[in-house]
Computed example of a mutant assay.
Amino acid sequence: MRAALSAAFAACAVTAVLPGSASAEAGVVGARGAGVERVSAAADGTEADGNSAGASITHDGRRVVFSSSATNLTPDAATEGDSVFVRDQRTKQIQRMGNLAPIQPPVISGDGEYLGYAHQWITNVRIRQYQVGTGRTASLNCSAYSCDQPSLSADGRYTAHVVRSPRQPTFGQRIEVQDWNDGGSNQTVAALDHTQPSRPSISGDGRHVAYQDGKAKDVFVWDRTGGTTSGPIEGPAAQATLVQLSDDGGKVVYLSGSDTYVHDVRTGAAQSLPNVRGVAIDPTGRYLLYAPHDTTGPSLTLRDLRTGTEEIVADQPASAGTDAVSAGGRDVVFQSTADDIVPGDTNGKSDVFVRHFY
Rank of each mutant, 00 (worst) to 15 (best):
D304S: 08
V17E: 15
A8L: 05
S246M: 06
D282C: 05
G112C: 06
I312G: 03
E47L: 15
N181D: 10
S151L: 08
F357P: 00
D315G: 07
G206K: 01
Q178A: 06
S201Y: 06
S258K: 12
V253D: 04
V39A: 10
Y114G: 00
W180V: 04
S201I: 08
S109E: 03
A238Q: 12
R90I: 14
D282F: 02
G308M: 09
G249S: 10
S272N: 14
V132I: 15
L100A: 11
R266P: 13
Q168G: 04
G98S: 09
Y114C: 01
V333L: 02
Y117W: 08
Y211G: 02
T346N: 12
R207V: 15
F171T: 11
R32C: 13
S319C: 09
P200E: 00
P105S: 13
T91Y: 06
V279A: 05
A216T: 11
T46V: 12
D213P: 00
N275V: 12
R355I: 07
G321W: 00
G348A: 02
E47C: 05
Q244N: 09
G184D: 05
Q316A: 14
A210D: 04
S109C: 05
T159S: 06
D259P: 04
T267P: 00
Q89R: 13
A24N: 15
Q239A: 15
G321T: 05
S201N: 09
T228L: 05
D213F: 06
S21W: 07
I312F: 03
A138K: 03
A327Q: 11
P169V: 15
V265T: 10
H263M: 08
R303M: 07
E25D: 12
G50S: 09
R303K: 15
I281H: 02
Y358F: 12
A314Y: 01
N124W: 08
G61Y: 09
L245H: 05
G231I: 13
L5Q: 12
V354G: 00
D155E: 13
D351F: 02
A154L: 08
D264Q: 10
G231Q: 06
H356N: 11
P274H: 10
D182Q: 11
A238L: 13
R126A: 11
L300D: 01
A280I: 08
V162T: 15
A48E: 03
I122V: 11
G116R: 01
T58E: 00
A191P: 06
G27K: 03
D111C: 07
S319L: 12
V65N: 01
Q89C: 01
L302C: 02
D340P: 00
G231A: 11
P150M: 13
G45M: 05
R207P: 04
R306G: 04
Q104N: 12
I175R: 01
S153K: 07
R38Y: 08
L242R: 07
Q168K: 11
G156Q: 03
K92F: 10
G184P: 00
Y145M: 14
V209A: 03
L305I: 10
F171S: 08
A280G: 08
T229H: 10
Y261N: 05
S230M: 12
R62P: 05
A240R: 02
I122G: 02
V342G: 02
V221G: 04
V325N: 00
T123H: 09
L140W: 09
R126D: 14
R174E: 15
